[in-house]
Amino acid sequence: MALLSPQDLQAFGLTLRLAATVTASLLLLGTPLAWWLARTRSRWQRPVAAVVALPLVLPPTVLGFYLLLLLGPHSVVGRSMAALGLSPLPFTFAGLVVASMLYSLPFVVQPLHNAFESVGTRPLEAAACLRAGPLDRFLSVALPQAMPGFVTAAVLGFAHTVGEFGVVLMIGGNIPGRTRVLSLRIYDHVEAGEYHQAHMLSLCLLVFSFSALLAMSLLRARRHRHD
């Protein structure tokens, strides 16, 4: 393919792999967190919700900087990982995944939180009075009723991970094949004056983001017609 160089394609593949891994992990971890946020009456609910929302307002470089310090080889985390025989996270794909998960956390948890809240207590109480235990109620009532929220969370989480820049630069270091994702590749092209290549990749991202949002709103509209 002449339009994209092998390096561009590599960055493309890496980005998709990163976004897919991050989205799947976030859905897995974000579901219990969102469920807790929607159901708890603990006084920790609001502080925790604020922490989850932090990446929305924090400059990505701040987040990346702190992560670099936190995960670096001389930090507590880094030293305990080294003691366990694990290599330090910064400048690796695993490091990117961890950083991106934090950065995209609110984009997954907030739609799930809203979806669980809109399910309300009534269907769950009705299920309890029909002999469904807590886990059964969650799987057979809460999950299916919150499904539109899962679609939104997956699309937003994926798209947002694809589009990040500051955090991946800080924690990933722009290493070809390992941590050089699309957004960094575009930056490289612009710096090198390769506007044509930058155009191609940017257009790809633009079309992708637009399609993701359009697909989401179409899915939602179809659901509404059903309801």
């Binding site: 009534r122 269907p123 109480e125 009705a126 299920a127 009532v141």
Partner: peptide, 9 residues
Amino acid sequence: FQDAGLFTH
């Protein structure tokens, strides 16, 4: 329940 509480899904 007063509002029946049926499962909409």
